[in-house]
Design a protein around this nucleic acid. Structure first.
Lengths: 197, 197
DNA sequence: CTGAGTGACATACGTGTTGTATGTCAATAC
DNA sequence: GTATTGACATACAACACGTATGTCACTCAG
């Protein structure tokens, strides 16, 4: 049973995460001051330190939240696909599209790694990557994909999608280059396919 | 002809870049204080602001220096290869190997993008990427590679190599996963190859 | 019902860091 | 030989983070 106090605490945590997410996305982690964030949430730094241990802890919480949303969207994209192989491709495309959002870009792709270290160390990023790895392993087992190291392939696929997204986001006409990136991504990914006999 | 003053100035610039490069690589950009860097170089912050305009300017200078070194190494790797296609692969492998160095990782892959913005905006990173793009375009023209968008393909290739490098660097046994990553990279890149007739 | 205890959060303070404004001295120009 | 410029040092102000301490509401024995 949730007591009155823990309910309140959850609310303050949620409020801080929300305002921090906003501030980190727009101003960047370094330029976002804790005083501003807490004031915006109607609190002080005391609450922040009590709940998250510090500025990095708050960023970690924001990252975890966004990451959870991303995993959910990746799963949805994969399950929408007709075949496992198409599922992998759809997952890559979904990843590209998510990385177009300024919030994802700034927090997950720029500041997050710089402040918290390599994403492969984050508990949830592993979940996201693990999904791709498992998908690829399944494709290898069923003979669709060449017998390469599944984790290595997953890493490369994700990296390609990631960079494609960064490219698109920085482009003058994002909507114009998106299809080019998606097409090149599909071609590249086809390199993993078993040569048809 | 170089006057006495400009010679001195070049020396102080070089010294500051050297110590900053060291400090940024080991402690990270945020944790490296300008006082420490300048003191290590036997100077004060005055010199730093005069020559580089601020902390970001100093990082930019360090990034430019490292980037120039990387481009040189990429060119060397490509020219060592037997064929243009092998040149592209060698370039990717060289990129992976460079990203294994802590200095490159910390400064070029983590702090650089976070502080200076997306690498595609940097003047030199474009040179590095431009090389790959041109290589791919040449391969398309000669019929080795499928007719995809050359820049998109270059972006994806570089992104894959980049993430492979980050993965390797964060791994428990970097030397053990390196061959796996290289193998997967070659397979993936093969997706760009024109299907043999 | 009541008083001690605990937890959530606010307030106050010290330290370190950045950026700017001003000062100084050597090198060049006239 | 003096005036001026430019490279760098010093001094100062603003700010942000982290910690130490304080306060008040809620919980729970007795």
């Amino acid at each position: 049973m949730a007591t009155k106090r823990t309910q309140m605490m959850e609310m303050t945590r949620a409020k801080l995460i929300r305002t921090a997410r906003e501030a980190f996305a727009t101003k960047g982690y370094a330029a976002a001051s804790m005083d501003d964030i807490t004031a915006e949430a109607g609190l002080t730094r005391g609450a922040l330190y009590h709940n998250f241990g510090g500025k990095k802890g708050l960023l970690q919480a924001v990252v975890d939240q966004i990451d959870a949303e991303m995993v959910a969207r990746l799963m949805a994209a994969q399950q929408r696909a007709a075949s496992p192989w198409e599922g992998l491709l759809e997952e890559g495309v979904a990843y590209i599209e998510m990385a177009l959002e300024p919030e994802v870009q700034r927090i997950m792709l720029l500041d997050g790694p710089a402040v918290l270290g390599d994403p492969s160390q984050w508990p949830n990023q592993n979940a996201c990557l693990l999904r791709t790895t498992q998908t690829i392993q399944a494709l290898i087992d069923e003979g669709t994909v060449k017998p390469v190291d599944a984790e290595a392939a997953a890493r490369l696929i994700n990296g390609a999608a990631l960079n494609a997204a960064l490219w698109i986001a920085a482009a003058d006409e994002p909507r114009a280059v998106l299809p080019k990136a998606v097409e090149a991504f599909r071609q590249l990914a086809a390199g993993l396919l078993q040569a048809e006999r």
